[in-house]
């Protein structure tokens, strides 16, 4: 899933300090799961903003809404009746959601309230770790199902580098050396010799190298 983390309050307040009416919009998908932009976080941020304004003697009128998924035009459409009474929209969705609101409501100031981070998995309750980089050409089949692009600090496809020690990355002991994991995995599967096959230089066009991407299903496209 897409993970995100709430922006510091000061930054959000900077965006909307001159506004009097705010439309604060959460999203009930990924950002809810990682407790960054769900209905509860919307209420928390609303309360925090309210207190911040009042503390400085200013008033602000915040309408709280949470859409099912902010990256779908039909759901974003639900904001239409309220958009005019708001000086600005603060979206707690991931980057996709924020931009979808911007696309739909021309001329309306829209600000992000969270920092969208990575596609990850729940390592344990309350902790999410990066798992996929979206490179567009998955090489998990070559590495026993563990991705070096997303989980090696240097994206080495023929690791490990010289800095791997005790299974941890040279950059930080918090980070597992993915090549250690891959090596253990290959041993588990009994295909250690697969390690010596060189993974050739990657064609990054399928990643960001080729520019922003689209997926089109002709059968579904209207």
């Amino acid at each position: 899933m897409i993970t995100a983390e709430r922006k510091p309050l000061a930054e959000i307040i900077d965006y909307i300090d001159n506004c009097r009416r705010i439309l604060l919009v959460g999203c009930n998908e990924c950002v809810t799961v990682c407790a960054a932009g769900g209905r509860k976080e919307v209420a928390m941020l609303a309360s925090a903003m309210q207190m911040d304004f009042m503390k400085r003697g200013k008033t602000v009128d915040i309408r709280e809404m949470t859409l099912e998924r902010q990256c779908e035009p039909e759901y974003v459409e639900e904001l239409a009746p309220f958009i005019d009474q708001a000086d600005a929209v603060v979206s707690m969705a991931c980057g996709c959601g924020v931009q979808e609101v911007v696309r739909r409501f021309r001329g309306k100031r829209v600000y992000p309230a969270v920092n969208t981070s990575f596609m990850g998995a729940a390592e344990r309750p309350g902790v999410w770790a990066e798992r996929c980089h979206g490179c567009g050409n998955c090489l998990l089949g070559l590495t026993g199902g563990i991705c070096p692009i997303a989980r090696c600090s240097k994206r080495l496809m023929n690791g490990p580098c010289g800095g791997s020690s005790k299974g941890k990355c040279e950059v930080s002991t918090e980070i597992d050396c993915v090549w250690q994991l891959i090596w253990d995995r290959l041993k588990e599967l009994g295909i250690e010799d697969r390690y010596e096959e060189i993974i050739l230089a990657k064609d990054w066009r399928t990643e960001r190298g080729g520019g922003p991407r689209k997926i089109v299903r002709e059968d579904l496209a209207q």
């Binding site: 799961v33 209905r39 976080e41």
Partner: peptide, 11 residues
Amino acid sequence: GICAAECPAKA
């Protein structure tokens, strides 16, 4: 009520 207070979607 622990679940009610933890639920991020206030569901």
